[in-house]
Measured scan of single mutants.
Amino acid sequence: TTIEWNGTKITVDNPQKAKELAKKIAKKLGLTVKVHGNTITIE
């Protein structure tokens, strides 16, 4: 699972952990999480 935001890509083996990490990042930055299959985008 890949997390993408602002040109940065982070690959996380565990999809559940990836989703939790994305939510934490999005919350800190005041952004939203969008899931597209194996890609999680923070916008």
Results as ranks from 00 to 15, higher is better:
residue 1 T to L: 10
residue 1 T to Q: 05
residue 1 T to A: 11
residue 1 T to G: 08
residue 1 T to E: 05
residue 1 T to Y: 11
residue 1 T to F: 13
residue 1 T to C: 11
residue 1 T to W: 14
residue 1 T to N: 07
residue 1 T to H: 09
residue 2 T to H: 10
residue 2 T to F: 09
residue 2 T to Y: 07
residue 2 T to R: 03
residue 2 T to Q: 08
residue 2 T to V: 13
residue 3 I to D: 05
residue 3 I to V: 09
residue 3 I to W: 04
residue 4 E to A: 08
residue 4 E to Y: 12
residue 4 E to D: 09
residue 4 E to T: 08
residue 4 E to L: 12
residue 4 E to F: 12
residue 5 W to G: 04
residue 5 W to L: 08
residue 5 W to A: 05
residue 5 W to F: 13
residue 5 W to T: 04
residue 5 W to Y: 11
residue 5 W to S: 04
residue 5 W to K: 05
residue 6 N to R: 08
residue 6 N to Q: 10
residue 6 N to L: 13
residue 6 N to A: 09
residue 6 N to D: 07
residue 6 N to E: 09
residue 6 N to T: 08
residue 6 N to C: 15
residue 6 N to P: 10
residue 6 N to G: 12
residue 7 G to H: 08
residue 7 G to R: 05
residue 7 G to F: 09
residue 7 G to P: 05
residue 7 G to S: 08
residue 7 G to I: 10
residue 8 T to M: 15
residue 8 T to H: 15
residue 8 T to S: 09
residue 8 T to E: 06
residue 8 T to K: 15
residue 8 T to N: 15
residue 8 T to P: 02
residue 9 K to S: 11
residue 9 K to I: 13
residue 9 K to A: 07
residue 9 K to Q: 10
residue 10 I to L: 08
residue 10 I to H: 02
residue 10 I to N: 01
residue 10 I to R: 01
residue 10 I to F: 10
residue 11 T to H: 14
residue 11 T to W: 15
residue 11 T to F: 15
residue 11 T to A: 05
residue 11 T to G: 02
residue 11 T to Y: 15
residue 12 V to M: 13
residue 12 V to C: 13
residue 12 V to L: 13
residue 12 V to N: 01
residue 12 V to E: 01
residue 12 V to T: 05
residue 12 V to F: 12
residue 12 V to S: 02
residue 13 D to P: 09
residue 13 D to Q: 14
residue 13 D to I: 12
residue 13 D to C: 13
residue 13 D to K: 14
residue 13 D to R: 14
residue 13 D to A: 15
residue 14 N to G: 05
residue 14 N to I: 05
residue 14 N to P: 07
residue 14 N to D: 14
residue 14 N to H: 06
residue 14 N to Q: 03
residue 15 P to R: 10
residue 15 P to L: 13
residue 15 P to H: 14
residue 15 P to S: 07
residue 16 Q to M: 11
residue 16 Q to P: 02
residue 16 Q to N: 11
residue 16 Q to W: 13
residue 16 Q to C: 04
residue 16 Q to D: 11
residue 17 K to Q: 10
residue 17 K to A: 11
residue 17 K to E: 09
residue 17 K to H: 09
residue 17 K to P: 01
residue 17 K to S: 06
residue 18 A to M: 02
residue 18 A to H: 01
residue 18 A to K: 00
residue 18 A to L: 04
residue 18 A to V: 03
residue 18 A to F: 04
residue 19 K to Q: 11
residue 19 K to I: 15
residue 19 K to Y: 15
residue 19 K to L: 15
residue 19 K to P: 01
residue 20 E to N: 11
residue 20 E to M: 13
residue 20 E to I: 12
residue 20 E to W: 15
residue 20 E to H: 10
residue 20 E to S: 10
residue 20 E to K: 13
residue 20 E to Y: 13
residue 20 E to L: 14
residue 20 E to G: 05
residue 21 L to Q: 02
residue 21 L to C: 08
residue 21 L to P: 00
residue 21 L to R: 02
residue 21 L to K: 02
residue 21 L to A: 02
residue 21 L to Y: 08
residue 21 L to M: 09
residue 21 L to I: 13
residue 22 A to P: 00
residue 22 A to F: 03
residue 22 A to K: 01
residue 22 A to S: 02
residue 22 A to D: 00
residue 23 K to L: 13
residue 23 K to E: 15
residue 23 K to H: 14
residue 23 K to Y: 15
residue 23 K to P: 01
residue 23 K to F: 13
residue 23 K to M: 13
residue 23 K to D: 15
residue 23 K to G: 07
residue 24 K to Q: 10
residue 24 K to D: 06
residue 25 I to S: 00
residue 25 I to W: 06
residue 25 I to C: 05
residue 25 I to G: 00
residue 25 I to T: 01
residue 25 I to A: 01
residue 25 I to R: 00
residue 25 I to L: 09
residue 26 A to M: 06
residue 26 A to K: 07
residue 26 A to L: 04
residue 27 K to T: 09
residue 27 K to V: 08
residue 27 K to P: 00
residue 27 K to H: 12
residue 28 K to P: 02
residue 28 K to W: 14
residue 28 K to C: 08
residue 28 K to D: 10
residue 28 K to T: 07
residue 28 K to R: 12
residue 28 K to S: 07
residue 28 K to L: 13
residue 28 K to M: 10
residue 29 L to S: 06
residue 29 L to N: 06
residue 29 L to V: 04
residue 29 L to G: 03
residue 29 L to W: 14
residue 29 L to H: 14
residue 29 L to C: 13
residue 30 G to L: 02
residue 30 G to M: 03
residue 30 G to A: 02
residue 30 G to I: 01
residue 31 L to E: 01
residue 31 L to P: 00
residue 31 L to N: 02
residue 31 L to A: 12
residue 31 L to S: 03
residue 31 L to T: 04
residue 31 L to R: 03
residue 31 L to F: 07
residue 32 T to E: 07
residue 32 T to I: 13
residue 32 T to M: 09
residue 32 T to W: 03
residue 32 T to H: 10
residue 32 T to A: 09
residue 32 T to K: 12
residue 33 V to P: 02
residue 33 V to L: 10
residue 33 V to E: 01
residue 34 K to H: 13
residue 34 K to D: 02
residue 34 K to P: 00
residue 34 K to N: 08
residue 35 V to T: 06
residue 35 V to H: 07
residue 35 V to A: 05
residue 35 V to Q: 08
residue 35 V to I: 14
residue 35 V to Y: 12
residue 36 H to K: 10
residue 36 H to Q: 12
residue 36 H to E: 12
residue 36 H to V: 13
residue 36 H to F: 11
residue 36 H to A: 09
residue 36 H to D: 12
residue 36 H to S: 12
residue 37 G to C: 06
residue 37 G to H: 06
residue 37 G to A: 05
residue 37 G to K: 05
residue 37 G to F: 04
residue 37 G to L: 06
residue 37 G to N: 07
residue 38 N to D: 08
residue 38 N to T: 08
residue 38 N to Y: 03
residue 38 N to H: 08
residue 38 N to M: 06
residue 38 N to I: 05
residue 38 N to S: 10
residue 39 T to W: 07
residue 39 T to N: 07
residue 40 I to H: 01
residue 40 I to E: 00
residue 40 I to R: 00
residue 40 I to F: 03
residue 40 I to Q: 00
residue 40 I to N: 00
residue 40 I to Y: 02
residue 40 I to L: 08
residue 40 I to T: 01
residue 40 I to G: 01
residue 40 I to V: 05
residue 40 I to S: 00
residue 41 T to G: 02
residue 41 T to L: 13
residue 41 T to R: 11
residue 41 T to Q: 07
residue 41 T to W: 14
residue 41 T to H: 10
residue 42 I to V: 06
residue 42 I to G: 00
residue 42 I to S: 00
residue 42 I to T: 01
residue 42 I to D: 00
residue 43 E to V: 15
residue 43 E to L: 14
residue 43 E to A: 12
residue 43 E to W: 12
residue 43 E to K: 09
residue 43 E to F: 15
